[in-house]
């Protein structure tokens, strides 16, 4: 329809998705509830920052279970990094978090998704990243890619997390915040803040959000990732603040 507001198509070539067998080279406890998996994937075509993949587990009788996970790494390398949060009633995530160890083989399909992606050296608009819990994974990939490329696009990350121990990529994020073109990192603790933190634990309110993001007047690209409730709330408020809905990209996790 001619009056339809168009969304810029991303027709840029992305690596073709396919099934691959990867070898887990490291399984490291990321938080008390999450494990970082480093997987060397033979034939992996590389992936853009923000993409995801499917992991398929197969039981001896042929039963399979498949779930999608965001990728914390990007670039041409054949090594992909995941950080998997254990869901209370999950079938796949508890296995990946508690059972998988270095040397195991995993079937993965990807890279997937071409919209929740940001590439260095492209769009000059400032970038606001907003993460709830494990939703930080693809945003970390994006912020990491910017730093690795030496890209100086203004970047902010607003990260809502339960406690200091639940912060994913804590050291890496701190390093990104200390570069010459730093990532501005705003952490919001919802259950327990570090000793000496200026504010008590709190959730992101409308006021806090408005004060913590790149203003709409600067026309930022915004990436929001978290639970559906988190994403819906944040995205609604951003639109109320005057952010262009077409500049807000969302990704939700959920399911088991």
């Amino acid at each position: 329809m001619s009056d339809t507001v168009g969304i810029a198509p991303s027709v840029r070539a992305v690596p073709r998705a396919g099934w691959h067998v990867g070898t887990v080279t490291a399984a490291i406890r990321e938080t008390p509830n999450a494990t970082r998996l480093e997987i060397e994937v033979d034939g992996w075509p590389g992936n853009a920052p923000g993409q995801h993949l499917d992991v398929r587990l197969t039981a001896p009788d042929g039963y399979t279970a498949t779930r999608s996970y965001s990728i914390a790494s990007s670039g041409d390398a054949s090594r992909v990094v995941l950080a998997v949060d254990k869901l209370p009633d999950g079938e796949v995530s508890p296995f990946l978090v508690d059972e998988v160890r270095a040397g195991d083989l995993l079937e993965v399909h990807g890279p997937l998704g071409a919209f929740f992606v940001w590439r260095p050296g492209g769009d000059p608009r400032p970038v606001q990243l907003i993460a709830g819990g494990s939703g930080v994974v693809p945003l970390y990939a994006i912020a990491g890619a910017r730093a690795q490329a030496g890209d100086e696009t203004p970047f902010r990350l607003l990260y809502s997390v339960r406690t200091p121990g639940d912060v994913y990529f804590a050291r890496e994020l701190e390093a990104l915040a200390g570069t010459s073109a730093p990532l501005r990192l705003d952490l919001v603790y919802t259950r327990r803040a570090p000793d000496g933190w200026p504010t008590p634990p709190r959730r992101i309110t409308r006021e806090l959000l408005e004060a913590s993001v790149v203003p709409a007047a600067e026309h930022p690209l915004v990436y929001v990732c978290g639970s559906t409730g988190f994403v819906e709330r944040i995205a609604d408020w951003l639109v109320e603040f005057g952010h262009d809905p077409r500049s807000i990209r969302t990704e939700r996790y959920g399911g088991t």
Binding site: L57, T58, A59, A65, F95, L106
Partner: peptide
């Protein structure tokens, strides 16, 4: 392909 340790 079988995933080591996975029973589902």
């Amino acid at each position: 392909f079988i995933t080591r340790g996975f029973s589902g």
